[in-house]
Computed example of a mutant assay.
Amino acid sequence: MTARRATRLTAGLLVGFALVATTAAVRAAPESDDPRLLIDLPADVRQTFLEHMRTHMTTLDQVLQLVGGGRVKEAGVLARKEMAIGQGLGIGRHMPAEFREMSFAFHRAADDFARVTQTVADPPDAAGWKALMTGIAAITTQCAGCHGAFRVR
Rank of each mutant, 00 (worst) to 15 (best):
A126D: 12
A24R: 08
I136H: 02
R108T: 10
T55W: 12
G135T: 04
T141Y: 03
L13G: 10
R27G: 03
A110P: 04
L37W: 04
A137K: 07
M83F: 11
G148R: 02
F49A: 06
E82Q: 14
L89A: 12
G128R: 12
D33Q: 10
A144E: 01
P35G: 05
G135R: 05
A11F: 05
R80N: 14
G86M: 07
T22D: 12
T7H: 13
L50I: 07
T7S: 14
R108G: 02
G90M: 11
F17Q: 02
M83K: 10
D125A: 06
M133A: 06
A97I: 14
A121I: 04
L13I: 05
D111S: 14
L78H: 10
V120C: 03
A126T: 11
R108C: 05
R115F: 09
V15M: 02
A28S: 09
A144L: 02
Q87A: 10
T59H: 08
P35L: 06
A105H: 04
G128Y: 05
Q118D: 13
L66P: 10
F106A: 08
D44L: 00
R54E: 15
P42K: 00
A110H: 06
E74Q: 15
R93S: 08
A137T: 08
E51N: 12
A84N: 13
K81H: 15
A109G: 03
V120Y: 00
V15C: 00
L37R: 11
R4E: 15
D34C: 03
V26K: 02
E51I: 09
A144Q: 00
V20H: 06
G135Q: 04
R36D: 03
A126Y: 04
A75T: 13
V77W: 10
R80H: 15
A121N: 09
H56G: 02
A97R: 15
T10M: 14
V20I: 11
A25F: 00
A24I: 11
H52R: 15
G76D: 13
F106H: 11
R27S: 08
A137E: 05
A121G: 01
P123D: 02
A75S: 15
L60G: 06
D111G: 15
G68L: 06
Q62A: 14
L9F: 12
T119W: 00
F113P: 07
M102Q: 14
V15H: 02
A131D: 00
A114H: 11
Q47M: 06
L60Y: 09
K130G: 01
H147D: 01
